[in-house]
Amino acid sequence: MTKRREQETDLTPTEATDRVWELAKQIDICMFVTWDGEYNRARPLSARVQRDENAIYFLVNNDGAKNKQLSKYPKVTLAWSDSSHYKYVTISGSAAVTNDRQKITELWEKTDGAWWENADDPEIRLITVKPDEGELWDSPGLVVATAKMVFAAVTGAKPEVGDNAKVDL
């Protein structure tokens, strides 16, 4: 874990890494971005963030276009947004689609019943993302960030509205 580029943060690389994982888990739904050879394609998916396994999991349908895209272009970007609190995270890495029935059963949540009958549904597949790098934008919240932006506008100073850090994962 090392600093990758200029950052606007007092966080150590370890603290920034911890915060990337924490925010990804807290926010849950992310935009899962793939490449189809011509365009980036994004869709919202529920992320099962498992830092101890250095993995982020997604339950998906077997026939999804993203599965075909990943077989040819496995690099993905995941983007989480909590805009009401000015907290944002991206994680990039490699993804693979499998039919790991044991892991699918382990990850199954009651809300998955909206999409499939149960964890044994033969149409469910597992996407596993192994992160390479992450970036966060983490502010102290709407009220504080707004006050700092107003102060900056009045004084002409650059607003300090939170942390921005890029780290290897």
Results as ranks from 00 to 15, higher is better:
Thr2Ile: 13
Thr2Pro: 04
Gln7Tyr: 11
Thr9Gln: 04
Thr14Asn: 12
Arg19Met: 14
Arg19Phe: 01
Trp21Asp: 09
Trp21Tyr: 10
Trp21His: 08
Glu22Ala: 12
Glu22Trp: 09
Leu23Ser: 06
Ala24Ser: 14
Asp28Tyr: 02
Val33Trp: 06
Glu38Met: 11
Pro44Asp: 10
Pro44Leu: 12
Pro44Phe: 11
Ala47Gln: 06
Val49Thr: 06
Arg51Met: 12
Asp52Ile: 03
Glu53Val: 03
Ile56Thr: 00
Leu59Ile: 15
Val60Lys: 02
Val60Thr: 14
Asn62Thr: 06
Asp63Val: 05
Gly64Ser: 12
Asn67Glu: 08
Asn67Pro: 00
Gln69Ser: 02
Gln69Asp: 15
Ser71Met: 12
Ser71Asn: 09
Lys72Glu: 10
Lys72Met: 11
Pro74Asn: 09
Thr77Phe: 00
Thr77Asp: 04
Leu78Trp: 08
Ala79Leu: 10
Ser81Met: 01
His85Lys: 15
Tyr86Trp: 08
Lys87Phe: 01
Tyr88Met: 00
Tyr88Cys: 01
Val89Thr: 04
Ser94Asp: 13
Ala95Thr: 01
Ala96Thr: 15
Ala96Phe: 06
Val97Asn: 12
Asn99Ala: 15
Asp100Leu: 03
Asp100Val: 08
Arg101Thr: 07
Gln102Thr: 09
Lys103Gly: 03
Glu109Ile: 13
Asp112Pro: 09
Asp112Lys: 04
Asp112Thr: 04
Ala114Pro: 00
Trp115Val: 06
Trp116His: 07
Trp116Leu: 11
Glu117Ala: 15
Ala119Glu: 14
Pro122Met: 01
Ile124Gly: 00
Arg125Asp: 07
Thr128Asn: 13
Thr128Cys: 04
Thr128Met: 05
Lys130Tyr: 14
Pro131Ala: 00
Pro131Gly: 01
Pro131Tyr: 02
Gly134Ser: 11
Gly134Cys: 10
Glu135Pro: 02
Trp137Gly: 03
Ser139Glu: 02
Pro140Gln: 09
Leu142Lys: 06
Val143His: 02
Ala145Ile: 06
Ala145Asn: 12
Ala147Gln: 04
Lys148Gln: 10
Ala153Ile: 00
Thr155Lys: 13
Gly156Phe: 12
Glu160Pro: 05
Gly162Lys: 04
